[in-house]
Amino acid sequence: MRQQKSPPARASLRSHAAATVTSLTLRPLTSVIPANRPGILVARRIVATTLALTSPRLPGSRIVPVDRSTRRGPSVRGEWVRGPKARRNDAVILYIHGSGYAICSARTHRGITTRLSEATGLPVFACDYRLAPSHQFPAAADDVRAAYSWLLSEGHDPDRIVVAGDSAGGHLAVDLALQLLREGATPPAALVLLSPLVDPTLELARACAEVRPDPMAPMSVVERLLDLYFADADLAAPRLTFTFDDVSGFPPTLIQAGGREFLRGDAEALATALDVSGAHCELEVWPGQMHVFQALLRVVPEAVPALASASDFIVAELDAAERRSSFSVVESA
Rank of each mutant, 00 (worst) to 15 (best):
D199M: 01
P287K: 04
I112T: 14
S325E: 10
A106Q: 11
M1R: 08
E210S: 09
S55E: 04
T114I: 09
G288D: 07
I103E: 00
D159S: 11
S195H: 10
F244L: 05
A177R: 01
D142Q: 12
D157L: 11
H16Y: 12
D199Q: 03
S117A: 10
S6G: 05
R260P: 00
I255C: 03
D214K: 05
T253A: 11
G259S: 12
A321W: 00
I93L: 10
R323Y: 06
H156M: 10
T272V: 09
A267V: 05
I63K: 12
V42C: 15
I103Q: 01
P196V: 12
A320Y: 06
A209W: 08
A173D: 08
S6V: 15
S195L: 09
T272E: 12
P252L: 01
V292G: 00
R77G: 04
T243L: 06
D266K: 02
S105I: 03
R160C: 10
V66C: 11
L176K: 06
Q3H: 10
A173I: 04
P187L: 03
P188W: 00
A126K: 03
Y148V: 07
V64M: 13
E223C: 09
L240Y: 05
V292L: 04
A141Y: 03
E302D: 11
C127R: 01
E118R: 03
P8I: 07
D166R: 02
G98S: 04
G98H: 02
D214W: 06
I161K: 01
L131T: 00
F313T: 01
L152W: 08
P7R: 08
H280E: 13
I96D: 00
T201H: 11
G98L: 00
V198Y: 07
V162L: 05
Q136S: 15
R45V: 08
P187Q: 01
L270C: 05
S326L: 11
R110W: 13
V76T: 13
V174G: 02
A267S: 14
L197T: 03
S69H: 11
G265M: 10
S311A: 14
V329P: 00
G165E: 09
A173M: 09
P28M: 01
S134K: 10
G288C: 14
S15Y: 03
T25S: 14
R82F: 14
V221C: 09
F244S: 02
E268R: 09
A310N: 01
L283P: 07
V211S: 13
D166L: 05
G121R: 07
